[in-house]
């Protein structure tokens, strides 16, 4: 049995935030303590890729920030063996008065890039970010997306023993997001140890092998990633908010059926199909997609009796929304698809 070195050891960590609040205009105010994390215990071995999942406000970012040494615990201790890099947002500390190039050149040595490697590093960042002439312009003049591109390009080129990621995928246009995800996958495969938190369950399932579920500041599950995702889905309820629907019935041939997400629903990012299970009497996940224009479902994947409903949902603003009304499968004549105006 191979025993890997323990790189992160978290022992009974609790974190409290302290706020100063004032109810009335002329009052001395009072100090309020918020328990963000309670008695978190786990260890991470070298080579493990762990995901921290949980609802908004459950304490995921607090835990990561605490492990990174950015937040003081109220009690407990953490030991980390090795150099860590913490990706939270896309700004590693750029100076708004410097150009993109100057920022990269000046900040790189502070993050461990050797003097003889700075030029190569800078060129690599410029190439990846595709900022072009904007790379020579002041950082303060960048749009949010450009700042995100530069930040991500810089951070993802750095190296460390342990990588901690706190949902750093938001920046840039669709093409850049694709590129970022590809680089993140490559980065993750090179890094010995990874701990990340994200709301993208399909993403964490593809990258991580172990999952920690945080709920209400407590560690409620620690185990294989798929089991962790299952546990998380059990404790959370999907928020159903109506958007729009193109039709009520979907024709299913002997082979199956096709959906063109772009044409029929005008969406192609972060979607899933949920199908109604009459035994469980609830919608269950059938398939999750990322950046897919169309989908073909074979007949064999569907229930035998086609008297069932399905919905297409889209992930937006950290919630799942219905992108279609409940659609019934039918073997009747196919109806014309109404294009959304």
């Amino acid at each position: 049995m191979v025993i890997n070195k323990i790189v992160i050891s978290v022992q009974n960590i609790s974190v409290d935030y302290h706020e100063y609040t004032r109810d009335k205009v002329f009052s001395f105010g009072k100090r309020q303590t918020i328990n963000a994390l309670k008695n978190i215990n786990f260890t991470l071995e070298e080579g493990e890729h762990v995901a921290i999942i949980g609802r908004n406000g459950s304490g995921k970012s607090t835990l990561l920030n605490c492990i990174a040494g950015m937040l003081r615990p109220a009690s407990g201790s953490i030991e980390i063996n090795g150099r860590t890099l913490f990706l939270s947002g896309v700004d590693p500390g750029f100076d708004s008065e410097l150009t993109g190039r100057e920022n990269v050149r000046q900040l790189a040595p502070a993050y461990g890039v050797k003097k003889e490697e700075i030029e190569e590093f800078t060129d690599s960042v410029k190439q990846f970010t595709e900022l072009g002439e904007a790379f020579e312009r002041k950082y303060s003049g960048y749009s949010g997306g450009m700042k995100g591109k530069l930040g991500f390009g810089f951070i993802s080129d750095l190296r460390s023993d342990i990588l901690m990621i706190d949902e750093t995928f938001g920046a840039g246009d669709r093409e850049f997001k694709k590129k970022s995800k590809a680089r993140m996958n490559a980065m993750v495969s090179e890094i010995p140890t990874l701990i990340m938190c994200s709301h993208g369950l399909s993403l964490v399932a593809s990258i991580c092998d172990r999952g920690l579920v945080i709920d209400g500041g407590e560690l409620v599950f620690d185990g294989p990633i798929n089991d962790a995702i299952g546990h998380y889905e059990e404790i959370t309820e999907d928020s159903i908010n109506w958007i729009e629907f193109p039709y009520q019935k979907k024709y299913v041939s002997k082979e199956g059926f096709d959906i063109n997400f772009k044409e029929e629903f005008r969406i192609f990012e972060d979607m899933r199909i949920v199908i109604y299970d009459s035994k469980l009497k609830q919608f269950i996940l059938m398939e999750e997609f990322e950046n897919l224009d169309s989908f073909n479902c074979k007949r064999s994947k569907l229930p035998e009796h086609l008297d069932c409903m399905f919905k297409i949902q889209q992930y937006k603003d950290e919630k799942w929304y219905d992108a279609s009304r409940y659609i019934r499968f039918t073997t009747e004549e196919p109806i014309s698809v109404k294009k959304i105006e």
Binding site: G69, R72, P73, A74, S75, G76, E79, I80, N81, R83
Partner: peptide
């Protein structure tokens, strides 16, 4: 080998 030790008193 760097080691980071964190508790309520120090980091």
């Amino acid at each position: 080998q760097l080691k980071l030790e964190i508790n309520e008193s120090f980091c």
